[in-house]
């Protein structure tokens, strides 16, 4: 696998500041060789802008609130950078998971194990 030089943007879509999940995931991704750019709580347009400015290979969104805020962020990223894959973690109830998966986004709800998340990042960035 070749994760060197692969860049992942991580953002929280909500104004909810639970930082445990994203911090632990970011550490695991960095340990696997990725460059992780964390921008914390960001509005959909800020996520989109950062995905351009930082020239990332993958966008990871942490959802702490309503799925539709994330859906808006996903739509904006897709519009400006359609080639960039997106994956999502956080509090995502089954109905929201179905909605996101319907958009072609991979979802890692609570209880997901770090090796699975890292494997997904490797696959999605083509680092495999």
């Amino acid at each position: 696998m070749n994760t060197a030089g692969k860049r992942i943007l991580m953002a929280k879509t909500g104004l909810d500041g639970h930082w445990r999940g994203p911090t632990v995931v970011a550490k695991a991704l960095r340990d696997a060789g990725f460059e992780v750019i964390m921008i914390g709580m960001a509005r959909p347009e800020e996520v989109m802008q950062a995905s351009i400015d930082e020239d990332v290979d993958l966008v990871g969104l942490n959802i702490g609130g309503h799925v539709d805020v994330a859906v808006r962020a996903i739509g904006m990223v897709r519009e400006s950078r359609p080639e960039v894959p997106i994956f999502v973690g956080g509090v995502v109830p089954p109905h929201a998971k179905r909605k996101l998966e319907g958009l072609g986004v991979e979802v890692y709800p609570p209880g997901s194990q770090l090796p699975d998340i890292v494997a997904a990042a490797i696959r999605l960035t083509g680092a495999a």
């Binding site: 104004l15 509005r43 959909p44 609130g65 309503h66 539709d68 805020v69």
Partner: peptide, 8 residues
């Protein structure tokens, strides 16, 4: 910052 996340 709230308007941007009104569904929340």
């Amino acid at each position: 910052d709230v308007v941007a996340r009104r569904e929340d």
